[in-house]
Design a binder for these strands. Structure first.
Lengths: 159, 159
DNA sequence: TATACTCGGACAGCAAGAGTCCGAGTAGCG
DNA sequence: CGCTACTCGGACTCTTGCTGTCCGAGTATA
């Protein structure tokens, strides 16, 4: 799993606090990570339509939809790619006892089992939204945590 | 996800047919894959205790337990490593608004959600055994498929 | 209209998986 | 009892994709 998923999720939670666009540099400084690399993850999110970018002097990134309608699955698929983690190379059609291609109407049992497990994983990710994460942050770190982030985002003037 | 998982699972299903040790070279020829690389996956399975190796002239690999008691999760953990796919770098403890370490008694909400999804994935993998896969192969390719593999394993004399 | 600030895609660096090889060890056979 | 041939086991190299960085295109602002 790509490490950028963690950054993208935290950024989405942070973007919940501000309806105005937030520059990528601010998000990078807030999380103390490489701004140049974080930009790549944000571009992936923008390409997937989860966030939209506005250019210009007071530009940045902002969520396109309500946090309740953005699931973790959306973010993971945007950053790590939509393809399944398990790839079936059709090993049954190779070797001296190869199954003829005409008999392969459905995926082989191995692929079915692995893809079934991935489906369960996707279902669990789709059941959690960015709004849920923001709520949990409030209960964990206290209700003043997210407003403090909002204030820092608008008021931080790096000398 | 490592591609060797597919090879390892197919090998386990094949090993179901023979109670006698099967050399790695035979398994590689049967699946038409690199024997040198397949050895690495089999070594991982042996290290995890799923299969045991016997050396010598008529040596090879054989299952240690009954196929009904070997789950897909066992194989995946043996090949891909037991660590979780999502790694939390404790991003909340960095940056100007870092959460103090004393307040981090439990994992952050992002990690909890991701790990919960992985737990669902693991649960689905643990619900399927190698015996289930072998049964599904029988229903898919006909009940004579696995006995044919067994016959090929014992009788194949590469000229 | 000039400017400064933003995003966007193109460019190196590195670690982990993919693939290969040869030596240690053992069961079978003369 | 010794030899041989066959097996596994770990050490080595290579490629792919993630990690990290950079500069140019575009736009809202003053």
């Amino acid at each position: 799993m790509s490490g950028g998923v963690e950054w993208a999720l935290h950024c989405c939670v942070v973007l919940t606090t501000s309806s105005r666009p937030v520059p990528a540099a601010k998000l990078a400084e807030l999380h103390d990570v490489s701004g140049s690399y974080l930009a790549k993850q944000l571009q992936s999110l923008a390409r997937a339509g989860l966030i939209h970018s506005v250019q210009g002097k007071s530009g940045g990134y902002a969520l396109t939809r309500a946090p309740e309608s953005i699931t973790l699955l959306d973010v993971v698929r945007a950053v790590d790619g939509p393809g399944p983690a398990f790839v079936c190379t059709e090993i049954r059609q190779r070797g001296p006892l190869a199954t003829p291609a005409t008999a392969c109407t459905k995926p082989c049992p191995v692929a079915r089992a692995m893809w079934g497990a991935e489906e369960a994983w996707r279902r669990a990710l789709a059941a959690v939204t960015i709004a849920d994460l923001a709520r949990d942050v409030g209960t964990d770190s206290g209700p003043e945590a997210l407003p403090a982030v909002r204030a820092w985002l608008t008021g931080a003037n790096d000398s």
